[in-house]
Design a protein around this nucleic acid. Sequence first.
DNA 1: ACAGTTTCCCGTAAATGC
DNA 2: TGCATTTACGGGAAACTG
Lengths: 425, 425
Amino acid sequence: ERQPCMPMHPDRPLVIKTGVQFTNKVRLLVKFPELNYQLKIKVCIDKSRKFNILGTNTKVMNMEESNNGSLSAEFKHLTLREQRCGNGGRTNSDASLIVTEELHLITFETEVYHQGLKIDLETHSLPVVVISNICQMPNAWASILWYNMLTNHPKNVNFFTKPPVGTWDQVAEVLSWQFSSTTKRGLTIEQLTTLAEKLLGEMTCLEKAMCQLLWLSDHLGQENMAGKGFSFWVWLDNIIDLVKKYILALWNEGYIMGFISKERERAILSPKPPGTFLLRFSESSKEGGITFTWVEKDINGKTQIQSVEPYTKQQLNSMSFAEIIMGYKIMDATNILVSPLVYLFPEIPKEEAFGKYCRPEAAPEPEIGGDPMSTIQPYLKTKFICVTPCPSVFMDFPDCELLGNTFPGTNSGNTSDLFPMSPRT
Amino acid sequence: ERQPCMPMHPDRPLVIKTGVQFTNKVRLLVKFPELNYQLKIKVCIDKSRKFNILGTNTKVMNMEESNNGSLSAEFKHLTLREQRCGNGGRTNSDASLIVTEELHLITFETEVYHQGLKIDLETHSLPVVVISNICQMPNAWASILWYNMLTNHPKNVNFFTKPPVGTWDQVAEVLSWQFSSTTKRGLTIEQLTTLAEKLLGEMTCLEKAMCQLLWLSDHLGQENMAGKGFSFWVWLDNIIDLVKKYILALWNEGYIMGFISKERERAILSPKPPGTFLLRFSESSKEGGITFTWVEKDINGKTQIQSVEPYTKQQLNSMSFAEIIMGYKIMDATNILVSPLVYLFPEIPKEEAFGKYCRPEAAPEPEIGGDPMSTIQPYLKTKFICVTPCPSVFMDFPDCELLGNTFPGTNSGNTSDLFPMSPRT
DNA sequence: ACAGTTTCCCGTAAATGC
DNA sequence: TGCATTTACGGGAAACTG
């Protein structure tokens, strides 16, 4: 017998969320056709924390048509439920570990009778991490990656009590794979270098290659994320999610530089003509944001590097990023809108890069079912244009006062209705 | 003994969703202090469809401190689960009714021994509707409203096999109450009249008052909603939800006319000066939308009535409606933005009405943690401005072609990344 | 008090049943 | 096949619990 597989989240095997169905399969590697329908397999989970497996947890092995007659048993619709003991609380034997570093084994047990002799057989999955909420996925998945990157041991559930260090090369490969496995593009050397600086701090390339990375609670954890209260993995996962759900085509095209430090950004943009811009991810936002940075000349002819506040999934829901780029305008003192974005770095005209990803402008057209006799106009189509007003034109928004009060958080919506500011008199 | 109460959704008692906790309470109206801790109550549900009650379903009555010593038992953390029978399928005795019209009774049973005589006592809740998904709530709640509007019968579970008709006056009161019970404002006569026209078609006021409304499958159901595939109740519920979550303050102020026909809108706006506008709900969108309609003069001096495509919750998430109103612009042929909105009907300057609900403009400010030595600019704040470009300036968006292809649905997001249009050559 | 963790449950999407 | 209904589960928020 041998290693079973453990799909759940399609892209995140070996992480199981309580209450969510998972599937797994055992195969008998040695062929014993005569045992067809003879082996009854039982799935269990280790007892370090008390989980119950719900669903049909015993099954008889049978021959796979597809796989040249080897015996297998597939368990579907299994779920895990934590058994809170009477007095409550976690029944964790190793309370020193946080949940996402706690490793568990799914075991498969059976008995074979051979020449009157009972033989107990047992095999198990690779270590799995059990989570209770999807928000634990990024860290759980990081644990799976770290384990499989650094050991071939099939069942070292105490791996994280003393996690081994990894080299930057190993980490870089794994990071790039997070992108290449779910999009058409992995990470470039430049992108990886930016991430390395984030994780390792400033050092030379040679040093980086030699450097050994520590696990979560150290370099990859909260501490190195400048006390922002979320781990590197959470930050990166949200970016991967942003890429997959909102800007996949642009990412696949290679239009998104993404990971680039502000210093390097300035260095490569400064020599470029005004209007040259690049796209990069927000470094500070946990939820994953993307922004553009461009070169322009100020009134004195001095080169300026500008960025807009990063766009989040929230905003990308009502407008695609390509459309935001194409439509973005700066409002000048005479209320004229001009786009500061002309060439995607190095020198691709923005229309060439993003035009094809914009939906066509809808021409005004009578509303369906509208009364042809009436002269009521059809609905006017609205374009949300992202505009950055120049300070000199704030007077165009008469009642919106110009306060120093900057609230850098994202636009959280409806609170202004619930907590109206006091009216001015 | 008497009627228990049945909270679940705070505002929607008597609707229970399977798998969601609910609470109920029985009180003994006659005082028998000597029975304290003597009466064991059991909760059950009728057997018309087979539901199981999960949770602690027996409890002993005890004295309430708060309620001058009457006996009561409160059941918390109860949930309902449908027991699918072996062969699958609904075990509904009355298959003619749709789920949201199927009424069930929660019963409370107990036994009293009095002078050696066993007395079975039983009471029950008002009829409840059991749903399995929250999307069934609007129709389920409508059933509860209809039942309680038209009968005092405590347990007529077959009510909807032959639902009685209601008068418009009754319906109007209930509709208004849907607003007044969760906001500070019910419906005006004008708003109710619009709804009446929607439900009853064109008729005089006198006729309306006399008119009797039929239940769901007839006037209040899909049919009268012009084959749009959703019931009046779903439409109205989404509007109530929109009001509560996104425009509560504006609603409470009475700024939202909301329910007004396009004809009446034209009639009241036409005599008004250009720039006069009103706010009304979308009539065609299931998800609840709100738009503004204004008067303007075209180049020939002719009065025009214009509306924008309604804003949905999706869009109101990233920008409050007050801000949308304040910022909305029409782009003229010279790229100048002008606001067509000046006076909220009848003649309230828009700044006076909506200014206080706009968040203050944030002045540009260095990013926290930014390097003071560098000349990298802080993030520029973005304002999403809703702009309606005039046809003559479509050339300002060079690669967004002007096609006749109008897609009236809401902006569903990221599809443009997944299904890019083919590039032009 | 507080942080790590789990539970609750809406709302969308998919699956299922009739 | 199509429609009615249920199930699945991510994600935000509240509740829990040492």
